[in-house]
């Protein structure tokens, strides 16, 4: 119950600071920090954000309010962050809104290069290639072979047109030189049901969505899209370098802390330091891993590079899909 009281005090503090009653700290915003999250409370991007904001508020000695503005695959969260600039608004977001959404969504209303200041990468999550346990292929090589037997022989599910799962599958298909039939769903729950029910053959999915079914011998995982084995499913082989797939094959979802461009560099610097310190905490790492995310960290430049790299990789995949 102590925790509840602390929360209540924080809430009270927020009201007081909000009405201008608190003393100013030098070179640091006096208002509570707002962190916009483009997904509903309780979703995994939201839980990741809260794993950062709770210790952040302790470290800064200042309330940090999470604002959930879900919609349009996270784009609305970024839009709202930019709209709320004056409030010392920050955001955490998945990769989509910064890399692929500007291509896929009609007028997103922001330019990632001009309007967004990267702060730090929070965590990454690879996808696994999963099939029903009784399916014939046993590894990546035999999967590719089965797919080559006939064009569109393998039907795979994703969580929507242009989703990470869809683009990853197309990136893989391109690298392997195969063509698969894309069946869009809206959630991993539907994809899982459809694979187990034998309606579709495969799917690239979050390890945490596949793992319970694998443990119950209903599904198997043929490979993983990260460049290193992933701690949540250490036995699943890395796809890169197998059966003619290039060694630099990598497809990961990620989650990052961002700010609107034009935010005071001193503030960005401080936030990067604090976020990295929080990500160093083994307890935080453990919690993230349980949800299927690997804690990362690093400099703002690292994140900027990641955004640029992924934008071009996924841009090529989108070009390929649109050309079909």
């Amino acid at each position: 119950m102590k925790q509840f009281n602390r929360r209540a005090l924080l809430a009270l503090g927020a009201v007081m600071i909000g009405t201008g009653m608190a003393a100013a700290q030098d070179a640091w915003p006096t208002e509570p920090l707002r962190v916009y999250v483009g997904f509903p409370a309780g979703s995994s991007p939201d839980v990741l954000a809260r794993l950062i904001t709770e210790p952040l508020s302790r470290k800064l000695g200042q309330p940090v309010v999470v604002e959930n503005k879900p919609g349009a695959g996270g784009v609305i969260g970024v839009q709202q962050m930019l709209a709320g600039k004056t409030d010392y608004a920050f955001g955490t977001t998945i990769n989509g809104p910064l890399t692929t959404s500007p291509r896929l969504v009609e007028n997103v209303g922001y330019d990632v290069g001009k309007d967004i200041a990267p702060v730090a990468l929070i965590a990454t999550s690879p996808l696994v290639l999963a099939m029903a346990a009784e399916a014939a292929p046993t590894d990546i090589a035999s999967f590719i072979e089965a797919a080559r037997a006939e064009t569109g022989a393998i039907a795979y599910g994703s969580v929507g047109q242009g989703s990470g799962a869809h683009l990853t599958a197309e990136l893989f298909a391109d690298a392997a030189g195969i063509e698969m039939l894309h069946i869009p769903f809206t959630s991993y729950a539907e994809v899982t049901t459809s694979i187990i029910g034998g309606e579709i053959d495969a799917g690239f999915m979050a390890p945490s969505a596949a793992l319970p079914q694998v443990q119950a011998d209903k599904m198997k995982m043929l490979g993983i899209t990260s460049s290193e084995p992933f701690a949540q499913v250490p036995d699943v082989p890395v796809i890169a370098g197998q059966a003619g797939i290039p060694d630099d094959f990598r497809a990961e979802l990620w989650n990052a802390f961002i700010a609107p461009a034009g935010t005071d560099p001193a503030i960005l610097e401080r936030l990067n330091t604090e976020v990295n310190a929080i990500l160093d905490d083994p307890e935080v790492q453990k919690k993230m891993l349980a949800m299927g995310w690997q804690a990362q960290g690093g400099t703002a430049d690292d994140l900027a590079r990641r955004i640029a790299d992924d934008t071009s990789v996924w841009g090529n995949v989108i070009d390929r899909i649109e050309a079909q």
Partner: peptide, 8 residues
């Protein structure tokens, strides 16, 4: 967004 085509 149309689930099948991604068209809005």
């Amino acid at each position: 967004t149309d689930v099948n085509s991604g068209v809005q």
